[in-house]
């Protein structure tokens, strides 16, 4: 059992991050924290891809010396995904700033009350 967990600890962490991220997005009332939750969620996915790149017993077509190699493709993919993630965060924070300017609060429940009077 312990072995099993130890061998797959990165998957465990991946889904832990996904869970935490989801919880923050749903459960937290603060908009900035929701955005952070979204980031945590995405980080979980990045980790998933990176860890999947380590393939046991895989060789490399270019290098001949023995040793563990990592498939570069998922890394490249995740670089792209990180860029996407950063832009998303930027847009999200921009929106948060606008919401704060407009309503003077970032708490969803206060926001709902303010907007009910709109």
């Amino acid at each position: 059992m312990i072995d099993l967990v130890a061998a797959r600890v990165h998957y465990l962490v991946t889904f832990l991050l996904l869970g935490i991220g989801t919880y923050m997005m749903i459960g937290n009332r603060n908009l900035v924290k929701k955005v952070i939750g979204m980031n945590v969620f995405q980080t979980g996915i990045f980790l998933f891809f990176i860890s999947a790149a380590y393939i046991e017993g895989a060789g490399s077509p270019v290098l001949s010396s023995p040793g563990p190699y990592v498939s570069p493709l998922p890394h490249v993919l995740i670089l792209t995904a990180i860029v996407v993630g950063v832009s998303l965060t930027a847009v999200a924070l921009g929106l948060v700033v606008r919401i704060y300017d407009e309503y003077g609060t970032l708490e969803t429940d206060v926001l709902r009350e303010v907007r009910a009077d709109e």
């Binding site: 847009v91 929106l95 606008r98 919401i99 309503y103």
Partner: peptide, 15 residues
């Protein structure tokens, strides 16, 4: 403000 709130919700769910 309404568009901003809508957009943020859209952003989080869409992401």
């Amino acid at each position: 403000g309404r568009s901003a709130v809508a957009a943020l919700k859209y952003l989080i769910v869409g992401t």
